[in-house]
């Protein structure tokens, strides 16, 4: 199902957004962030492939709607604020530089200084901690909320989804 807002954002970008609440541009940024926060490797998928961005997109329109304004203000700020120290925007950085930049945001480096105004009234480090928490929910929570595709994280932890009844040994 494609909602009205998805069609609208699709028109403005010339492409259909796969997201309902986020614009295509916001969604692409969340995809990169989800993979930096939970990186893919040879053994298990990263945040993007586990559909963490879909979880965030779905929940920003539902149970986490209080955070939508923060995402809308902070995603473009996160992309732009990087220019002052790294010369290019976030999406144009290499993976290692992106990690260093996010580490600085987490540490509060951007909570003051000239770029602070880009973020509106949300502290960059606060936004990042909320984003990390939402990525964890999307990666480890039930797939019914849009993320954790095929219970990828449960498989990563060696957990059967539906446990077989069993008994502990008597003490």
């Amino acid at each position: 199902m494609v909602s009205g807002s998805a069609v609208m954002s699709g028109c403005s970008n010339g492409l259909i957004s796969p997201y309902q609440t986020l614009t295509r541009r916001e969604g692409q940024l969340v995809e990169i962030l989800a993979d930096r926060i939970i990186p893919p490797d040879s053994r298990n998928p990263g945040g993007k492939d586990a559909r963490v961005p879909h979880f965030i997109d779905q929940q920003l329109g539902k149970h986490l709607s209080d955070s939508l304004e923060m995402y809308q203000a902070c995603l473009p700020a996160l992309n732009e604020a990087c220019k002052s120290r790294h010369e290019v925007i976030f999406t144009e950085l290499g993976e290692q530089e992106q990690i260093l930049y996010l580490t600085d945001i987490e540490a509060g480096v951007y909570d003051s200084g000239p770029e602070r105004r880009l973020w509106g009234h949300f502290a960059p480090s606060l936004f990042f901690s909320v984003l990390v928490d939402h990525c964890m929910m999307g990666y480890y929570g039930s797939p019914k909320h849009g993320g954790n595709k095929n219970y990828a994280s449960y498989k990563m932890l060696g957990l059967f989804v539906e446990q077989v009844p069993m008994r502990p040994r008597s003490s």
């Binding site: 926060i37 939970i38 490797d41 053994r43 932890l157």
Partner: peptide, 16 residues
């Protein structure tokens, strides 16, 4: 670390 490679490795290694 709360995120990144170290986060994922901690989950895999220490959940059990």
């Amino acid at each position: 670390a709360r995120w990144g490679r170290d986060h994922k490795e901690f989950q895999r290694r220490n959940f059990h």
